[in-house]
């Protein structure tokens, strides 16, 4: 198996990140926005792992960071979903544009 090198991983991470940002930007659905955020986080994960693999200065640092991010993402998703659920209960919608009660 030929060695792939760093670049394809970074390209993949960039693509994932772009997708995530696009998703966060375009979606009005709160669940969709959350999914975009997950994509962004995972793009970062890919980067971390890829750098850890291809940079001899690191040992397991990147992987540990990635695990950390996964854990954080899970926690974040839990909290965010709870908020979305609550919002749905109160407003019968998950459209983020409707969440404007705090607007000045």
């Amino acid at each position: 198996m030929t060695e792939l090198g760093l670049t394809p991983f970074l390209l993949l991470a960039a693509f994932l990140f772009a997708c995530g940002v696009a998703c966060v930007t375009v979606k009005r659905n709160a669940i969709g926005v959350l999914m975009g955020v997950e994509l962004i986080l995972n793009a970062a994960n890919v980067n971390l792992v890829a750098f850890a693999r291809f940079n001899s200065g690191f040992r397991l640092d990147g992987q540990v960071f990635a695990l950390m991010v996964v854990v954080l993402a899970a926690a974040e998703a839990a909290v965010a979903l709870a908020i979305v659920l609550n919002f749905y209960n109160n407003h019968a919608t998950v459209d983020v544009d409707e969440a404007n009660e705090l607007k000045g």
Partner: peptide
């Protein structure tokens, strides 16, 4: 505007 999505878009 208060729309987070617009801010994110601008940021990006």
């Amino acid at each position: 505007t208060g729309r987070v999505r617009a801010y994110v878009a601008a940021l990006a």
